[in-house]
Design a binder for these strands. Structure first.
Length: 606
RNA sequence: GGAGGCGUGGUGUAGCUGGUCUAACAUACCUGCCUGUCACGCAGGAGAUCGCGGGUUCGAAUCCCGUCGCUUCCGCCA
């Protein structure tokens, strides 16, 4: 570069610079060639500024500017001038000034880009990912990445200020049983052996507690070979935290302080502390979800008491079988057509419900409610009115009822609630609704494996008061688990760990793990615990999701510089690729089913 | 593994109840004109065998089957 850059373009919003000569460098945005005058929008990561090329100022610069194309990289010098009245652009921060170019050097020509380098781009995401370096040139993506950086710094600064030590843990680790599918790396020097990439640094952070690191954190890369979603990538980042000599509320208080501090530092907004807390059981009863979106109401209401003796087989049968009849109220939906209600029924059926009953509440004059429903064939008028009363349905509302097994009723109504919340636009988009969900069950029964498995992980501490149930009724033992939920998204999950040997053994026994098997699988951790393990607990916060929600995005791909597609492919680099026969041999690996090798991602493949 | 949506010039879309579709519109691109534009304007031009394969038909962007890719969701994610 011939000239040394003196300013970022965004700095020119400061009118004190008027009259000064500046040297700028950046990319050419739009060019407006008026024949005599040429305007360009010069862009760097601080913003854009308009540069004017006037042949009277510099014929040389002007004629060079006539040949500029989109995304050429240029160096411009000139005087910052106040724009003539009426020519100001108040929609951009630098809109009151121009740079009157005296000198222009093209540092690098650009091919015509495959899409516009502009905000609010609507273009196929594969194309964005293939040209991610151009996509990341767009101002909104630059803002996202810079925002993520700020959030990273806020997290690190906060935790540092609280005496936390960031420790890096290995990426090549031993595969541990349970949990997600591992990404696996073959070992060249150990034929037939494989490393796993960490699903989280769980065991290492507990070892660090044994080592006396008291307060550990890490912005940790984690890897899980599971199918992708808008908020799930195969590699992702967690704010991983572990603390010694703490109880649950110490962790919750710390995280509340961290999250609100980060919010203030990055968004400049605050939110009330402490966050709302709710037991898992309550979350399920009221919202049919272990991660309720509490930005809106429409809670689930049990109507079992009203219909338990109604004689309608579907309702009564559900209750007699130990199930449930419950409802939600869709506000202002009493005029839903049969087809619209059928569509809602499809939603609950998708989650196992047998069907959906509805009661439309309308005004019958004289303040009377008219209830119309296919249920009037089966229920008495009093029973229908009873339902309207406990659900507090008002004129114009539609009561939606599901009967069946408890978890099916709750989950399907919970999903229907979310569906309607979005459809009816009931969810305030500008709110940050944090929530702690606590007291999860310690175990659940895995239908697939036909055995009891840990809900969180096998080192999660049971609640003291439920210890007695461990042998008699393990599935109702509650754990000292806490999930942080933000706007219906699971942000993080943590627990107080077991540090007592006897408790750990009882948990293993409940999981059907013999002493020998436990040694084999987690031996190093158990052994470590025999050398003085402090009571400890921690949490891991999904950093990408936090960044996504704070940045107001709908997918974590928007806050990850180089994300993967839903098939876990990188359209930019073509990863994952095939490797040579030599590489395979060196790794002692044979590809069994060559016929299954797909072509997605890899441009080298046929 | 399953369900839905999408796939048409570089980009975003229209066309999709089969026949002047010899594929339209906008924008980007090229050429020319233009001294206050800022999504500059005006005039002209080039650019797509409609994701791919097969079938039905005299005739397919359009109908059918298969397949690939992207995406949302279910399963899965200690």
């Amino acid at each position: 570069m011939q000239k040394k850059r003196t300013h970022m373009v965004g700095e020119l919003a400061d009118e004190a610079l008027i009259g000064k000569t500046v040297v700028l460098a950046g990319w050419v945005g739009r060019r407006r060639d008026l024949g005599g005058l040429v305007f360009i929008d010069l862009r760097d990561r601080s913003g854009i500024v308009q540069v004017v090329f006037n042949p009277e100022t510099s014929p040389l610069a002007h004629s060079a500017a006539e040949k500029l194309g989109s995304e050429d990289v240029v160096c411009v010098s000139g005087v910052v001038v106040r724009r003539p009245p009426g020519a100001r652009n108040l929609t951009i921060p630098t809109g009151k000034v121009d740079v009157a170019a005296e000198f222009l050097e093209v540092l690098s020509k650009s091919k015509t880009p495959p899409f516009y380098i502009t905000e609010n781009l609507d273009v196929d995401e594969t194309l964005r990912l293939k040209y991610r370096y151009l996509d990341l040139r767009r101002p909104d993506m630059q803002r996202n990445m810079i925002f993520r950086h700020r959030l990273t710094m806020a997290v690190r600064n906060f935790l540092d200020s609280q005496g936390f030590v960031e420790v890096e843990t290995p990426m090549f680790i031993k595969s541990t049983p349970e949990g997600a599918r591992d990404y696996v790396v073959p070992s060249r020097v150990n034929p037939g052996r494989f490393f796993a990439l960490p699903q989280s640094p769980q065991l290492f952070k507990q070892l660090l507690m044994v080592s006396g690191f008291d307060r550990y954190f890490q912005l940790a890369r984690c890897f899980r070979d599971e199918d992708l979603r808008a908020d799930r990538q195969p590699e992702f980042t967690q704010i991983d935290i572990e603390m010694s000599f703490v109880e649950r509320d110490d962790v919750l208080t710390l995280i509340e302080a961290m999250v609100t501090d980060c919010m203030e530092k990055t968004l400049g907004t605050s939110v009330e502390k402490p966050f709302l807390r709710m037991s898992y059981a309550e979350a399920m009863e009221r919202y049919g979800s272990d991660k309720p979106d509490i930005r809106f109401g429409m809670e689930i209401i049990d109507i079992g008491d009203i219909v338990k003796n109604c004689g309608f087989r579907v309702f009564q049968g559900a209750i007699e079988a130990g199930g449930k009849v419950a409802a939600i109220v869709a506000p202002g939906c009493s005029d839903f057509s049969r087809q619209q209600i059928k569509d809602l029924e499809e939603v609950v059926k998708g989650f196992g419900a047998a069907g959906l009953m509805s009661v439309a509440v309308s005004c019958g004059g004289e303040g009377e409610q008219t209830l119309s429903s296919q249920l009037s064939k089966f229920l008495t008028e009093d029973e229908l009115r009873g339902i309207a009363k406990v659900t507090a349905a008002e004129n114009g509302d539609l009561i939606l009822i599901v009967a069946g097994a408890r978890n099916v009723v709750l989950e399907s109504l919970g999903r229907l609630r979310l569906h309607l919340g979005a459809k009816l636009d009931l969810i305030p988009q500008d709110q940050m609704a944090f929530l702690w969900v606590t007291e999860f069950p310690l175990f659940e029964f895995s239908q697939e494996e036909q055995r009891i498995v840990a809900v969180h992980h096998p080192f999660t501490s049971p609640l003291e008061e439920d210890l007695d149930l461990m042998e008699t009724d393990p599935l109702s033992v509650r754990a000292n688990i806490y999930d942080l939920v933000l706007n219906g998204v699971e942000l993080g999950s943590g627990s107080i760990r077991i540090h007592r040997r006897d408790v750990q053994e009882r948990v293993f026994r409940a999981l059907g793990l013999g002493e020998e098997e436990a040694r084999e699988k987690f031996g190093f951790l158990l052994e470590a615990f025999e050398y003085g393990a402090p009571p400890h607990g921690g949490i891991a916060i999904g950093f990408d999701r936090l960044a996504m929600l704070f940045a107001g995005r709908k997918t974590i791909r928007d806050v990850i510089a180089f994300p993967k597609t839903q098939k876990a492919v990188c359209p930019l680099t073509g990863a994952p690729g095939v490797i040579s026969e030599e590489q395979l041999n060196e790794l002692h690996i044979q590809v069994v089913d060559m016929g299954k090798i797909g072509t997605s991602g890899d441009p080298e493949l046929p």
